[in-house]
Every structure is written in C-alpha cells, then in structure tokens.
C-alpha cells in the first residue's frame, strides 16, 4: 500500500528550477532513500513533502489525501514527522523536554487544562514523559535526559532529534541527511537503528548524500539530478544504471 506519494511536483526559486516534475511513491513499511549530488534538490523535495514550502504545481498525497497546501504542523498531525539536515533542537530546554515536544500531536491538554492542572492532564503528562524516556532508551541516550539540549555533542543532538520524532509515533519518518557529520562506525550504527525503526512499523524516507548508508538498508532508491528524477528502483539496479553512474557516481569526488 502506498503511504506517501508525490505526483509531478515542481518548485522554482527565481531562476533556479529546484525540483522539476518529480513523481514517486513510498510503500507502507518500507525504507526508501532519495539520493543525489549536492544541489540536486533533495532538501527542497523534503521541504515540499513536509509542508515547509508549497509546490508550484503537482500534488503530495499522504494516505491518498492531498496535503500539499497544508502547513507543516497540520501535516505532522496527520502522521508525518521529519528531522533536519541542520539539527533544530529547542535551546534552553532539557533533552527530555525536547523529546516530550514530539508527543505534542498525540496529546491534547490545552490552555485551560494546562492552567488548571487537572487530574487527566497530570496523567497525560506522565504518559508523555514515559514515552519520551522510552524513545530515548530505545536510541541509547536515556542517560542524557536531564542534560541541556544545547550542551550535547553533535551526534547526541542528532539522536535527541530522532527521539523527538519517534515519540510522535509517526506513520512515516523523513530523515534529512541523518549521517551528516557521523564517522563510519556511527554511520553503520545508524543503519542498524533505521532498520529497527522500520521494524517498529514506521515507514522511513531518507535523504542522503552518502551512498554507503542507504544502499544496504533501502528497499528502493530515488536518484535526483538537477531537480529531476533520473532513477527510481532497487538499490542494486540503481547502482548499475548507466545514467546514475554518470551523473552521480562518476562525478563523486568523495
């Protein structure tokens, strides 16, 4: 079953055609990757899918419902959670509080309930805290719960950001370059982690510059070049695709 689908979406920034007529779909329970050289439009594509920017044309369907005109918070409420290429934690809050914000879409205490601190509000608050701690334990960062988020190392901040997304129990998780800044061993750990997340029933879409992470774990890979989709296939087939080899691997200076 298709969970998320892009139908010929395009986005232009002034003279730059960042994403051009891209279509693809993500099957429920799968891991799909979007790869491409720097500037291929991967992050723009992510911003389009998560409602951070609206496409000039085309549709984004989440469970068959068009969401391209919804703001990001409304898309999050519908079960799509994302991380950022440049980590965006909430400064001045502890790691645990950051992760607890992830539960926002699945809890309901409003201004009145919060001010009056009713019995059900306190129960909900305990539940939010427990689930946030569970996510942190799952990612092996339980001991960081009470650390100030902005005092953590880069890798730890990435993990907190991921825990925050997981706490919302999303239908689909969008990871924007999760391996950026990680060394080879950490990248290998991350690959294991992503498959574990998939095994929890969460569909995963990864944008990645680094091929080594995605080729092993992805069910399917979309390749972008200058905003256009040039391949959408199984990892092995993509690696053998002459056009991909030419525009991506052939010019990879890494």
């Amino acid at each position: 079953m298709t969970l998320l689908e892009a139908r010929s979406i395009s986005k232009r920034f002034g003279g730059l055609q960042a994403v051009k007529d891209v279509s693809f779909s993500v099957a429920q329970g799968s891991i799909k990757a979007v790869i491409g050289p720097n500037g291929a439009g991967k992050t723009t594509l992510f911003n389009l899918l998560s409602g951070f920017i609206a496409p000039d044309s085309g549709e984004v369907l989440l469970r068959g419902m068009p969401v391209q005109d919804l703001p990001s918070h409304a898309i999050a409420t519908r079960g799509l959670s994302r991380t950022f290429q440049h980590i965006r934690l909430f400064g001045g809050m502890s790691a645990l509080e950051n992760v607890m914000v992830g539960r926002h879409v699945r809890s309901r205490a409003g201004f009145m309930a919060g001010m009056l601190n009713l019995a059900w509000t306190r129960a909900e608050e305990r539940d939010i805290r427990d689930r946030a701690l569970d996510s942190m334990e799952f990612l092996g960062i339980g001991q960081l719960a009470h650390a100030n988020a902005s005092s953590l190392s880069y890798g730890q901040q990435r993990a907190v950001e991921l825990a925050r997304s997981l706490t919302s129990e999303p239908e689909i998780l969008l990871l924007d370059e999760p391996a950026a800044g990680l060394n080879m061993r950490e990248t290998a750990d991350l690959a294991v982690l992503i498959t574990k997340i998939r095994d929890r029933g969460i569909t995963v879409l990864i944008v990645e510059h680094d091929m080594s992470l995605v080729m092993n774990i992805s069910d399917e890979v979309v390749v972008l070049s200058y905003g256009e989709k040039i391949a959408d296939n199984k990892p092995l087939a993509v690696q053998k695709d002459p056009q991909v080899v030419r525009v991506y691997l052939g010019e990879d200076e890494c």
Partner: peptide, 25 residues
C-alpha cells in the same frame, strides 16, 4: 501550571526553533 504543561513546552519550543516546532505539530 501552564508553563509546566504541554502548552508551556509548545510555547518554549516556538521560542527555541519555530520551524522545528511546526514539524512536531
């Protein structure tokens, strides 16, 4: 009570990083 509740956390998250707060719903 409010600042220690879900709403208070949401307010501080907006203050911290508004786009990420949006991504969390």
């Amino acid at each position: 009570n409010l600042i220690h509740s879900r709403v208070g956390r949401a307010l501080r998250s907006i203050h911290g990083a508004e786009d990420a707060a949006g991504a969390m719903g």
